[in-house]
Design a protein around this nucleic acid. Structure first.
Lengths: 253, 253
DNA sequence: CCTACCCTGTGGTCCGACCACAGAGGTAGG
DNA sequence: CCTACCTCTGTGGTCGGACCACAGGGTAGG
């Protein structure tokens, strides 16, 4: 086993056992090296990996913010993995888009089925208000658009899916933006997107899960079609046609 | 910008531009250090991160397999991120299970809707045959079970979802195994699981998307219920039936 | 009491060295 | 001539030590 892996295992075990908690700090690099009987460079390699995994945040200086602080930031590592593997061309963008469609339609259905406090919807609402500004550039609009979609996926209450969705959006961002020139009429498109957003939010607020999911699916698919992007099949992110989705509820524990 | 990030950006840019390809090799650490005007330890930190991201594989010695070889292994980084963040207790296991249910039911629907070659189904079929061995321990059975589910999700043809599914299974593995003693009758459970697997595969082969999805959902939910694990709601991985999942994620800090 | 300074501990970076490893190519033996 | 061995070279793996920049806190001075 390589020496830096000693540190990784040590940290993971300490986290699982509760000896390390969010907000806490790792021992200093020199101390850690001595404790494990390895050198500081080896420790540093491990800390870098942990940092890349979104588990620690390092800073110089002194005080509570300095050193290697334990955090829980799953979005950045997911985004990094996605970007790197997209760069290798072994991860088709179409698959990413398809996944996004699946997660987002699920999130909308889920969010609509939940009891949401007014405060939860407020964030999304404000984003839509800001998107009503007609002076926004396509880029500015798209940034808000992305935030809205991410906020929406957060309403489903699944932190893992929300994190994945966020990183998917980041990965797709540039891809979508580059396709804006393909749109025959940006202004007309923006008008359509705005009203679709409002309708989605209304369905979520009104507790209409299936309608919310359908609207989201149509919303995303519509845009990709208009921008002549990544063809993908029917259904919710799928190529399946049937969509009755009569779930076997009632069997809940 | 930290020095090791120079290497990360350089590698990502080279990948995106096609200057680096899968199977190719990174320049030696010493050469890379000199090219970028930084030290070898800094380069090594970056290489470690790339390794953790599943983009390179390092080996000592000489020959084509030695050095830092470019690969595309998205499963291991995803698994690592998942495990570490589960260890922090800021990622509820219930969310992971819910996500698994969503991805797997989608995959089954998708796979059933696709035109599958006989060879694609063969792998899954052989796994089921091996699971028929009555002498298998719960652990051995579960390993094959996991392989079957992963193989199934691969049939949908989305590499991203397949990768995520694989890492989810890894993360869940120990969790599920620890719950086997909760089962009232392991042998009876195994018999049920076997027939459910056959039914799922038949639905996929027969091109019945909705049936395949329903069977998978029922299959997974049934097991979790029997093992008294992670309550999660109705629908395909959803809580659509609105039972507020109060996950025990608010422990630490 | 307030202010400015220095002291201390943190990560960030670098150098130079040595090790283990595995293939390549030369070399001695058949 | 062919084969087996063996050294040679380049790879990553590891180490110790050194110096830097930074930020906070204690302290000496006003």
């Amino acid at each position: 086993m390589k020496n830096y892996e000693l540190v990784l295992h040590r940290v993971e075990a300490d986290l699982a056992a509760g000896r390390l908690r969010i907000g806490g700090r790792l021992p200093g690099e020199r101390a850690l090296a001595e404790q494990l009987g390895i050198s500081r460079p080896s420790v540093r390699e491990a800390v870098r990996v942990l940092e890349a995994m979104g588990v620690v945040r390092t800073a110089t200086g002194s005080g509570p913010e300095a050193g290697a602080v334990i955090v829980a930031e799953p979005v950045s590592p997911l985004t990094a993995v996605l970007r790197l593997h997209l760069a290798t061309n072994h991860l088709p963008m179409g698959d990413v888009v398809q996944t996004r469609l699946l997660l987002e339609s699920w999130s909308a259905r889920e969010a609509a089925a939940r009891e949401l406090g007014a405060g939860e919807l407020k964030v999304a609402e404000e984003l839509l208000d800001r998107m009503d500004d007609a002076g926004l550039s396509p880029e500015e609009f798209h940034v808000l658009d992305a935030e809205f979609h991410v906020a929406l996926s957060g309403l489903a209450g699944n932190v893992l899916i929300a994190a994945v969705m966020t990183s998917l959006r980041s990965a797709i961002h540039g891809y979508v933006l580059a396709a804006v020139p393909n749109l025959p009429d940006w202004e007309a498109t923006a008008v359509g997107l705005r009203s679709e957003h409002r309708a989605i939010l209304a369905a979520v607020r009104g507790g209409e899960p299936e309608r919310a999911a359908e609207l989201v699916t149509a919303h995303i698919r519509g845009f990709y079609q208009a921008a002549q992007l990544a063809p993908f099949g029917g259904g919710e992110g799928g190529t399946a046609e049937a969509e009755d989705d009569d779930r076997a509820d009632d069997k809940v524990q």
